[in-house]
Computed example of a mutant assay.
Amino acid sequence: MNRRKPLGIAVIGAGRMGTDHVRRIHEVTSGARVAAVVDVDTERAKALAARVDGCTAYTDPAAAMTAADVDAVLIASPGPAHEADLLIAFEHDLPVLCEKPLTSDAASALRVLEAEQRLGHRRVQVGFMRRFDPEYAKLKALLTTGQLGRPLMLHNRHRNVASPPFFTSSMLISDSVAHEVDATRWLLGHEIAAVTVLRPAASAGAPKGLCDPQFVVLETDGGALSDVEIFVNCGFGYQVQAEVVCERGTARVGDGNALVTNMAGRWGGTIAQDWSERFETAYDREIQTWIDATRRGEVTGPSSWDGYVAAAVCEAGVRALEEGGRVEVALMEKPALYR
């Protein structure tokens, strides 16, 4: 790769996430260009590629990854397609930013780990963007100083206005709580040992048959507890909040109080309505960091190991939801490549 030229990126998936990343690379970040757009829907791929000069539309990920102007891959396709796309990228030794999940289950994530290890070097950054959110980054930095003492509990709230029509009860864990799984591991520096899922009465605003909200308890191997309120049909806004309780103090992020107004006998602010608004800066920083690292010949950020662990914890969470009780998390020994 010629580091004096923009990094040529193939974006796989022309849905909402892929479209947002194409816009971001084209208009916000520096050092890269969208060289290819891939989607099974030919017209959708062509329509998105037409927004960027010199961008080619494909329906076959393998064809895009062999194009001469493609240096790296951003995977934003549905989770079940990730394993195949990642293995193709490995065949061509291409750097990848893979939106979460790494894959849709722990078994396929293990296959990705094994394939990456055969390369002998990391190629994947997983899209756990909360690590790049300014508030979460400040919280992590504070915990790293040790000023608050040992973390004992982490309280998380994750609320959406409404869930997509295809959402199932298990997807509250595999598609939403997956973010808190990674945030818990990253903030506390612990692995998750067991999961319990409690089911309060379903909200009247939830579609029939959907267990919403849910209350998830994550036990860590460091003795801390992390709880997650996941409520995907709260109706009023998109909120992601976290409060860590330590031996000598607490710290909280996500209150959204950047602007508070007082007028006409009332005070208050606004509540974001979706993830693209709440985490816009995090996504910008995530993609720019990946571009910069790739141009240096490095791979940083959440690894395939982090993606595998999230898949394994979420599988345990789904079992806890469906079977009841506490479910222990079984992990393979961490490979040397990811230590």
Results as ranks from 00 to 15, higher is better:
residue 119 L to Y: 04
residue 91 E to F: 01
residue 125 Q to T: 15
residue 230 I to T: 11
residue 195 V to S: 03
residue 128 F to I: 05
residue 44 R to G: 06
residue 255 D to T: 11
residue 193 A to D: 08
residue 77 S to F: 01
residue 184 T to I: 04
residue 327 V to R: 07
residue 103 T to L: 02
residue 46 K to M: 05
residue 302 P to S: 08
residue 38 V to I: 09
residue 167 F to Q: 12
residue 251 A to P: 08
residue 86 L to V: 03
residue 248 R to V: 11
residue 327 V to S: 00
residue 217 V to Y: 05
residue 262 N to F: 13
residue 88 I to V: 11
residue 187 L to V: 11
residue 266 R to S: 13
residue 99 E to M: 14
residue 24 R to K: 07
residue 181 V to K: 02
residue 154 L to N: 06
residue 194 A to F: 05
residue 32 A to H: 03
residue 187 L to Q: 13
residue 192 I to N: 01
residue 301 G to W: 05
residue 144 T to H: 12
residue 143 L to P: 10
residue 334 K to M: 14
residue 40 V to D: 02
residue 260 V to D: 06
residue 8 G to P: 05
residue 103 T to H: 02
residue 95 P to W: 03
residue 300 T to I: 14
residue 210 L to P: 09
residue 146 G to N: 08
residue 196 T to G: 01
residue 53 D to P: 13
residue 252 R to F: 09
residue 285 R to T: 10
residue 197 V to S: 04
residue 313 V to A: 04
residue 177 V to F: 06
residue 166 F to A: 09
residue 34 V to P: 01
residue 85 D to L: 08
residue 331 L to D: 01
residue 141 A to G: 08
residue 36 A to L: 02
residue 187 L to H: 08
residue 69 D to E: 13
residue 159 R to C: 11
residue 5 K to P: 00
residue 176 S to H: 09
residue 159 R to F: 06
residue 337 L to T: 09
residue 159 R to M: 14
residue 150 R to S: 15
residue 38 V to P: 00
residue 161 V to M: 13
residue 288 Q to C: 10
residue 184 T to Y: 05
residue 233 N to R: 13
residue 196 T to C: 02
residue 196 T to I: 04
residue 212 D to I: 07
residue 282 A to M: 02
residue 64 A to Y: 01
residue 277 E to C: 12
residue 193 A to P: 00
residue 93 D to S: 08
residue 93 D to Q: 07
residue 240 V to F: 11
residue 303 S to H: 02
residue 42 T to Y: 14
residue 12 I to A: 04
residue 103 T to F: 05
residue 289 T to P: 03
residue 200 P to M: 10
residue 121 H to T: 08
